[in-house]
Design a protein around this nucleic acid. Structure first.
Length: 878
RNA sequence: GGGUGUGUAGCUCAGGUGGUUAGAGCGCUACGUUGACAUCGUAGAGGUCACAAGUUCGAGUCUUGUCAUACCCACCA
């Protein structure tokens, strides 16, 4: 017996445990069916589920469950990411509470602490994914730092190094002073701020009273200046080129050079060049062989090359300006809108800094990654995202992969005493290589840097499937079928996976890449902790059930667009679940048991044939839409069918049968009901796995678990059966409409005389007497002979109802007004039709069917007009 | 500066290839406890599809422009 109320908390967790314990998420490796595989975008191992995860994983689970029901060999490969910076940051923050820094612990102890932290909070997000219903094969769960994946990282690194695709270089990189590490361009966020532009001047050497005026937003870097640049096209200033000027305070002489970088229109036309602290200046420096003078320590304080050693950049800036003012060299200070780079994790101001770093030769790797998208081997859905991808890939810069962190994959690099580099898979191999190289034993020193987190994520599609140690799953499931991810991760992850996979596997990592949007708050603002507008999916699940949240995500997902969270809507889908629950309960109360011998094509009653055809139609819509990644259309097709066809009409229409005397009719109807309910559970299961399973288990003895039930394919749909009852529905709707419009009380049960129904429609009506009278609350339905088609039902009834003996009940004044309005409308339409049909261009050039349709509508409107006029006349004479 | 979206009912949004009188959910109005369901039912109101021009027999849909708005990339000494 089903509970009176739908209460998802009663069964969701229990059902999930059963799936997982029974191994229902594991692929049947012996099956000879097609494979379907998805790798999960690995969440941060210590993270907690947010709405973005809920969307991302709901979409994946829908696809996975749908394909599983199609009988395919399905693997959803789960796992988590070690998330280098993010995780190290959290652990450091925890230590800081006890006044401990990572240096107090030392590298090994610190890493131990991180692993402990991972033990402690590592299971949270995977538990939450289970709560959402994600049907991942957890027995294969991987972690980017586990043994196998680490092996993959090392192996690829060594191969890439030996192929010359990884190299060490001293370059200007984005330096995060808070964490003391380099970061990639992608991890830098540019923020608009109002800063100051400082105008001051450098004296020209040997010409007292002569100056070169410059403008800068960062005066404290002047101690690192190694030139001043002026464009050779700058008529006003070009006479200074070739002279030297003097950096005040430290009285250092630097040349004034000609370079295009100095735009005569901007600033003063003369630019101070600080190659060690500015990416543009670095390029200028390279062109002119300028020396690099670094003025910053790694914590972004000033270093010994400045008079302000130990001060922060801000403090040094104030001092510099003060001193320049004292020296009489300041021109002016203006407010200046500018963009300042911040670390996306640390929030610290990023400094360009000269350091030794390791790089991946991304421009080379990008070539193949671009080619396979160009030729359509890998397709973005929606397609427009390939533009974004191409744009970035074609302008890709070398990827800085070294991080001066402790938490991450340590690079397999060893240095000899002369700094010669040995890159091997392990220390023994490196030592052996060194012994061979030096001809004798030398002690090696291992590189301390670790790899960017995204390096290991880039291997995810094949490393999780067993590469390089085990090829069984790899052979079956690579390339994966589809990657589902958000657009903000295209560069970080999708692009890197494409490059790494093409490099190692020579094949694409996934055939399709489905890109979805962000989940925003109710007002469409981005959710963020700082704004305090985040919504915890776990709380939503607690309140409305996982199914409601999932259905919401699916129904809102229209390719690529952002989703605004709406609690009202989630509640609406909880109501939808309740509705289905109650429909199932109705079936239970009326003994609608599943008959395993029942074949839908056996049904004889039109009402049963109708709901079967409608169910098949809905199935087809869901199938087609899911195949095309049209999640919202798929979800809405089920929703409309369940609520609009099954509950609103079918259940109401079979009541007279179920409460009637005809046992044969009853039996067929009960079997049909059970069959249709089963069909609903199947096509709804990918979206709402919990309630469908609970109902599946409680409404019949089934041979197969719902999660493995066969998805119906290629059914012949009886369109006549659909038209038959759609006609009756239109009839009932019309009568109801008229009752309401004419204010006929609910308890009044009039007899309706149908004037002018033809033989066919009369037969039709007689067949549904009971149903129509019940649903339209009529006493009886009678008809006259006449000439009229079923689709003219509306006008028939408008006239017929007026024949009802309702004097004193109907407000004729109001009815007269309504009819007059309608008459005006009809006249308007008729005018339009006449105009259109008298246009020779239309008649000649539009498709015949369209013209025919227009003619038909015209004559229908004319007929309606006649009826309305007749009705008005009758009212006048009543 | 370069690029990509978006602008449709009070609100949030659907409207693959141009073709009925433009749809859904929520909200709103009126009526209704009818033996699955008030987490409900029935009926209804509500839109010159941002604006302007163009292509077409026909434009929410295609083209161009304007305005508004969001995001991405690069840069701003």
């Amino acid at each position: 017996m089903l509970e009176k109320n739908y209460n998802p908390k009663d069964f969701e967790e229990k059902i999930y445990a059963d799936w997982e314990n029974s191994g229902d998420f594991k692929p049947d490796m012996r099956s000879d069916k097609d494979a379907f595989s998805v790798v999960i975008p690995p969440p941060n191992v210590t993270g907690i589920l947010h709405m973005g995860h809920a969307l991302n994983n709901t979409l994946q689970d829908i696809l996975v469950r749908y394909n599983r029901m199609q009988g395919k060999k399905v693997l959803w490969q789960p796992g988590t990411d070690h998330a280098g910076i993010a995780t190290q940051m959290v652990v450091e923050r925890n230590l800081a509470k006890d006044g401990i820094t990572k240096h107090d612990l030392g590298r090994e102890k610190f890493i131990e602490t991180v692993w402990k932290w991972r033990e402690h909070s590592g299971g949270t997000i995977t538990r939450q994914l289970r709560r959402l219903g994600a049907s991942c094969d957890w027995s294969r769960e991987r972690f980017t730092m586990d043994e196998g994946l680490s092996h993959a990282v090392i192996k690829i690194f060594v191969k890439m190094y030996k192929d010359g695709l990884i190299y060490k270089a001293k370059k200007l990189v984005n330096w995060d002073p808070k964490f003391g590490t380099a970061v990639s361009d992608l991890e830098v966020i540019q923020k608009e701020t109002v800063g100051k532009m400082y105008y001051y001047k450098y004296p020209i050497e040997g010409e007292s009273g002569e100056y070169v005026h410059i403008a800068t937003t960062r005066p404290e870097t002047m101690f690192g200046d190694t030139a001043v640049a002026i464009s050779k096209d700058n008529e006003k200033l070009k006479h200074l080129i070739g002279k030297n000027c003097i950096i005040p305070i430290i009285n250092k002489v630097i040349p004034i050079i000609a370079d295009e970088h100095a735009d005569p229109e901007k600033g003063t036309g003369a630019v101070k060049i600080t190659p060690a602290h500015d990416f543009n200046d670095f390029e200028v420096g390279k062109r002119h062989n300028l020396p690099l003078v670094n003025v910053l320590n790694k914590d972004a304080t000033m270093n010994e090359n400045t008079p302000y050693e130990g001060l922060t950049t801000q403090e040094a800036r104030v001092k510099t300006i003060e001193t320049l003012t004292e020296l009489g060299l300041m021109d002016k200070i203006e407010d200046h809108p500018m963009v300042i780079p911040y670390g996306d994790r640390s929030g610290a101001v990023i400094e360009p800094l000269m350091t030794d770093q390791w790089f991946v030769d991304a421009p080379v790797l990008a070539k193949e990654a671009i080619r396979v998208v160009e030729n359509g081997e890998m397709q973005f859905v929606p397609k427009s995202y390939e533009k974004t991808y191409f744009e970035w890939m074609r302008n890709i810069q070398p990827w800085c992969i070294s991080r001066q962190l402790w938490w991450g994959h340590r690079m397999p690099i060893w240095y000899g005493p002369d700094e010669h580099i040995f890159c091997e898979e392990n220390e023994e191999a490196a030592q052996a290589a060194a012994d061979k190289y030096y001809g004798h034993h030398e002690n090696l020193r291992r590189e301390t840097d670790v790899l960017d987190t995204w390096f290991s994520s880039g291997l995810w599609a094949f490393s999780t499937l067993g590469w390089p140690d085990d090829s069984k799953y790899l052979d079956t499931f690579y390339p994966t079928s589809v990657l589902v991810t958000a657009f903000d991760i295209i560069f970080f992850w999708v692009a890197r996976m494409m490059m790494m996979s093409m490099y190692q596997m020579k094949r694409i990592p996934f055939k399709k890449c489905y890109i979805h949007g962000l989940v925003r708050d109710e007002q469409g603002r981005k959710m963020s902790k700082s704004k305090g507008n985040t919504v915890d999916p776990m709380e939503t699940i607690e309140k409305y059930g996982a199914d409601a949240l999932r259905f919401f995500m699916a129904s809102m997902e229209t390719q690529g667009r952002d989703i605004n969270l709406s609690e009202a809507r989630i509640a609406g889908y909880r109501n939808f679940a309740t509705k289905l629950w109650n429909a199932a309960r109705f079936g239970e109360m009326n003994d609608c048991k599943l008959d395993t011998n029942f074949k839908p094509e056996q049904s004889r009653l039109a009402i049963n044939k109708w709901i079967i055809a409608k169910a098949q139609e809905a199935t087809k819509q869901v199938t087609e839409n899911l195949n095309a990644f049209r999640f919202s259309d798929a979800a809405n097709a089920v929703y409309q069918f369940v609520w609009g066809s099954f509950c609103d009409w079918y259940i109401e229409m079979i009541k007279p049968i179920l409460y009637g005397e005809d046992e044969l009719e009853k039996a067929e109807t009960r079997a049909t009901f059970a069959w249709v309910l089963g069909r609903i559970l199947i096509i709804l299961h990918p979206f709402m796995p919990f309630i469908t399973t609970e109902l599946w288990n409680n409404t019949a003895q089934r041979e197969v678990k719902l999660i493995h039930a066969a998805w119906p394919m290629e059914e012949r749909i009886d369109l006549n059966a659909i038209n038959d009852i759609d006609w009756v529905i239109e009839l009932i709707s019309t009568i109801r409409s008229l009752r309401a419009e004419m204010n006929i009380p609910a308890n009044a049960k009039p007899i309706v005389y149908l004037k002018g129904a033809n033989a066919e429609s009369i037969k039709h009506i007689e067949q549904y007497q009971k149903i129509v009278c019940s649903l339209a609350r009529l006493e009886d339905l009678s008809s006259y002979e006449g000439e009229i088609s079923p689709d003219m039902v509306q006008s028939v009834f408008r006239e017929s109802v007026l024949l009802m003996p309702l004097k004193g009940v109907v407000d004729f004044a109001a009815e007269k007004e309504r009819l007059s309005k309608e008459l005006a409308n009809l006249n308007k339409y008729l005018e339009g039709y006449a105009k259109k049909l008298s246009n020779p261009n239309f008649v000649e050039r539009a498709p015949a069917a369209v013209v025919e349709e227009e003619r038909r509508r015209q004559s229908e409107a004319e007929a309606n007009k006649a009826k309305v006029e007749a009705a008005l006349e009758r009212i006048a004479n009543f």
